Amino acid sequence: MSNIELIIEEKAADIGNFLVGRLLPFRGKRAVGPFVFIDHMGPAKLAEHQNLDVPPHPHIGLSTLTYLFEGSIFHRDSLGSAMEIQPGAVNWMTAGKGVVHSERTPEYLRTSDTSLHGFQIWVGLPKELEQMEPEFHHTEASAIPAWEENNVQYKLIAGEAFGKKSPVPVYSKLFFIEIKNKEKTKINIGEHLFGEVAMYVLEGTVNLEGNEFGSKQLLVAKNATLCEFEMNENATVYLFGGEPFPEERYIFWNFVNSDRDVIEQAKLDWHDQNLSAFPKVAGDEDEYVALPKAILKHR
């Protein structure tokens, strides 16, 4: 019996002046464990006039995780954080009751040809933490647990698995794992996983239940504890998953919550530029992303 529940194809989405491949949410699968949103950015070559510029925009009820393979993004937020993220490091911002942030090409790279490639991820918060105070944490690449076993390289980017724990301060039971190999290898790691799991093949191909899969697909399994596959030569895969929440999570634009009324209030607060709910981003105060008119209810 097949353990593949769903195969999700990347769908192009516009995040301002940059196209990404959207993997979650999907009409047939709104979340995998606590992961409610996954964008695959790039790979893209950016000339000077193609700098990444996502102006200040709000979030509630989630944590954002940025993980790059190539390039650099400068993050600023309404907490006063100002941090450049480079390949292998993790930016983890927890919105809680409300935060605002911007993402741009760093100033020193804006007149150069650059590249950009990575993941932008949203992780839902447990119901009791959806209104927590916002936080920001940066974890350097050198602090991410990495090890080799049977000539296969592993990284535990976030969460817990394999008896290890990433220093990224997550708030639910989850895992985000990188696996790389050079030679054709069978992987059987179900005993280390739990809850739900999805696989993204970044490079190379994998064989799963008699079929070969490559990039631009998210393979969602029925049971994480049956996670077994074969990696062909020079492959890189990412596994996302964990325990799903007992309550449904609603997503409207940049807002995630288990309570629709909280989302409706966030819409109004952002539309009205209520600074007590959504403060300005220091160093990036001159513009913001307006609330799409289509999602604002009549008062």
Rank of each mutant, 00 (worst) to 15 (best):
S2K: 12
N3S: 06
E5S: 11
L6P: 05
E9K: 14
E10T: 12
I15V: 13
G16N: 08
G16Y: 09
V20G: 00
G21V: 02
G21N: 12
K29C: 14
R30I: 09
A31M: 14
V36Y: 01
I38M: 04
M41Y: 03
G42M: 03
L46N: 01
E48W: 11
H49D: 15
D53H: 13
P55V: 05
P56H: 05
P56T: 05
I60C: 01
G61Y: 06
T66R: 02
L68V: 03
E70D: 14
E70M: 11
S72N: 10
F74A: 11
F74H: 14
F74Q: 10
S78G: 06
E84H: 07
P87T: 05
N91F: 03
N91Q: 11
W92M: 04
T94L: 06
A95D: 02
G96S: 08
G98Y: 02
G98F: 00
T105I: 07
P106M: 02
R110N: 08
T111E: 15
T111F: 13
S115T: 15
L116P: 00
G118H: 00
W122G: 01
L125H: 02
P126C: 05
K127R: 13
L129D: 14
E130S: 06
E133F: 15
E133G: 12
E135V: 08
E135Y: 10
E140K: 13
S142D: 15
E148D: 12
E149T: 07
N151E: 15
Q153S: 15
Y154M: 10
I157S: 00
G163T: 07
S166G: 08
P169Q: 08
P169L: 08
Y171F: 12
S172E: 07
S172F: 08
K173F: 06
L174H: 03
I177Y: 03
I177D: 00
I177L: 08
E178H: 09
I179V: 14
N181R: 01
K182L: 09
E183P: 04
E183R: 07
N188R: 12
G190H: 05
H192W: 10
V201A: 04
L202T: 08
G204V: 04
L208Y: 11
G210A: 06
N211E: 15
E212P: 08
G214C: 07
S215Q: 12
K216S: 14
V220T: 03
V220P: 03
A221Q: 09
T225P: 05
T225F: 07
T225S: 15
C227E: 09
F229G: 04
N232W: 07
N234A: 11
Y238D: 02
P246T: 11
E247L: 09
E248Q: 12
I251G: 09
W253K: 05
W253T: 03
N254M: 06
V256P: 02
R260V: 08
D261L: 13
V262T: 09
E264Q: 11
Q265C: 11
H271L: 14
D272A: 12
Q273V: 08
Q273G: 06
N274F: 10
P279H: 07
K280N: 12
G283D: 04
D284L: 04
D286R: 11
V289S: 10
A290C: 10
A294F: 08
L296D: 09
H298E: 13
H298V: 13
H298R: 13
R299I: 08
R299T: 06
